[in-house]
Amino acid sequence: MLDDRARMEAAKKEKVEQILAEFQLQEEDLKKVMRRMQKEMDRGLRLETHEEASVKMLPTYVRSTPEGSEVGDFLSLDLGGTNFRVMLVKVGEGEEGQWSVKTKHQMYSIPEDAMTGTAEMLFDYISECISDFLDKHQMKHKKLPLGFTFSFPVRHEDIDKGILLNWTKGFKASGAEGNNVVGLLRDAIKRRGDFEMDVVAMVNDTVATMISCYYEDHQCEVGMIVGTGCNACYMEEMQNVELVEGDEGRMCVNTEWGAFGDSGELDEFLLEYDRLVDESSANPGQQLYEKLIGGKYMGELVRLVLLRLVDENLLFHGEASEQLRTRGAFETRFVSQVESDTGDRKQIYNILSTLGLRPSTTDCDIVRRACESVSTRAAHMCSAGLAGVINRMRESRSEDVMRITVGVDGSVYKLHPSFKERFHASVRRLTPSCEITFIESEEGSGRGAALVSAVACKKACMLGQ
């Protein structure tokens, strides 16, 4: 009897593995994704193909990295998701002549009506938060230079001027797309009239992360975010950046690689679950690469896999709870928690219980395998993109072996128990001629924006502006 049951459990697990095998990517698959990513990057950089390229390769006008001589107080704003952060950054000489960066910050959550109302409502709310922060720190009387981390696709015309191309991540505030974001912020500050600010720089969160990590390690020339969304930036040779005049030196390019796949480059790798996630998203047909990796989508992918296993009578005796059938019910943090389970399955059992399920031991094991399959594919897909960037940098610099540091931020990278190990191992397999160091950014977005502002202020002083 026991043997029969054991055989049935083994057969069930084997069927589960057959279904989950769809998520496995072979090294040849990853090399294919990497080569296609490089081709799209090239198209994004070139003037004649930029418009139709899915990977936009947006110039950021960040050319210099901090040298350690900029000092002063800077205000930093960070808008990239449902939370908005205001930070005071003091850049100065530390002990023994070292450079020191001290920060104080406060988080504000953005109400739904500000995210989806008008641009005026959104930026009025942001300036209200700045006003509140300055009151708390008794700094209303000071006109501070301000660095703005704005983590949406922007076409820069200068370091302090950028046109919002399109909202992502659930934002829909009308009247912002096609307009200068810094102008919208300046107008809102003017409307309030109770404080003055000098907006000197606007950067993407990947750029802010790279600059913040450069402060720790001067070989950091790539910034990457794996959180709600997924994106990367890197220092490109100016001669390859056709959208900006000049051939000397390097400029940081914001790849906006989340949109890779929007022209069909990933079609052969998309599964039924991916198509369902895409169809029910706020932007169907867009940001397809990001939807395979980002935390906004990972939990939902797992939920759809679990429903398939229920329908195949391989999980929960073929019956799903009402909660499990509800879109968004299986949160991405559950994926991390399930994979963090120590082996007694308590954590998995508790999560499934909150979803109205009474799982068996085998159910718990199957749910864990589903989570591992989805998150491992995410790590491997992400590795193909980064390997594409790094191999490109090595080739354009004609280096036999390139040493490089990548600064990384984002909740999936930082909080998932195995993502970074799987990701690092896969990147290294795909970049055999590179020695890569990964560092995690601390308060990256805010500190990085302030350091970019410090560079901009120093330049302005040198130019006598």
Rank of each mutant, 00 (worst) to 15 (best):
Y289M: 15
L79R: 10
I390W: 01
K104I: 10
G44F: 00
A6H: 13
T149W: 12
S441D: 08
H105K: 10
I439W: 07
E93D: 08
V452H: 07
W167G: 14
D3F: 03
G446R: 13
S174G: 06
V62D: 00
P153I: 10
V33K: 01
H105T: 10
M107H: 12
I390L: 11
M381G: 08
E322M: 12
V101A: 03
V253D: 00
T116M: 10
R85E: 09
Q138M: 13
D400N: 03
R308H: 06
Q286V: 14
E331D: 12
Q287G: 14
S64Q: 15
T354C: 07
T49L: 08
W167Y: 11
A119D: 08
G246D: 03
E216D: 06
E14I: 12
I211V: 04
L146F: 15
K140R: 10
E279S: 15
H141D: 02
V86Q: 04
L451E: 13
V302L: 05
E67Q: 12
S131P: 02
E157M: 15
L77D: 00
R186D: 05
L184R: 06
F148E: 05
G295W: 14
D42Y: 10
N313A: 09
G68A: 06
E27G: 07
M197E: 01
H380Q: 13
D344G: 02
E339K: 01
M402S: 09
L2A: 09
V91R: 04
S411W: 10
Y413L: 11
A450V: 13
G295C: 14
G264V: 07
A378M: 10
Y273E: 12
K90D: 03
F438Y: 05
Q98V: 07
S54W: 04
K140P: 02
I110P: 02
K31M: 08
D267E: 05
R428W: 09
V305E: 01
I19F: 11
R7A: 15
L324M: 04
R397V: 08
T255S: 12
S212L: 04
L88H: 03
I130G: 01
G328Q: 15
R428A: 13
M393K: 11
E9A: 07
G147K: 06
R447S: 14
T326L: 14
S54E: 11
N231A: 06
V222E: 00
F171N: 08
A379I: 12
V406M: 02
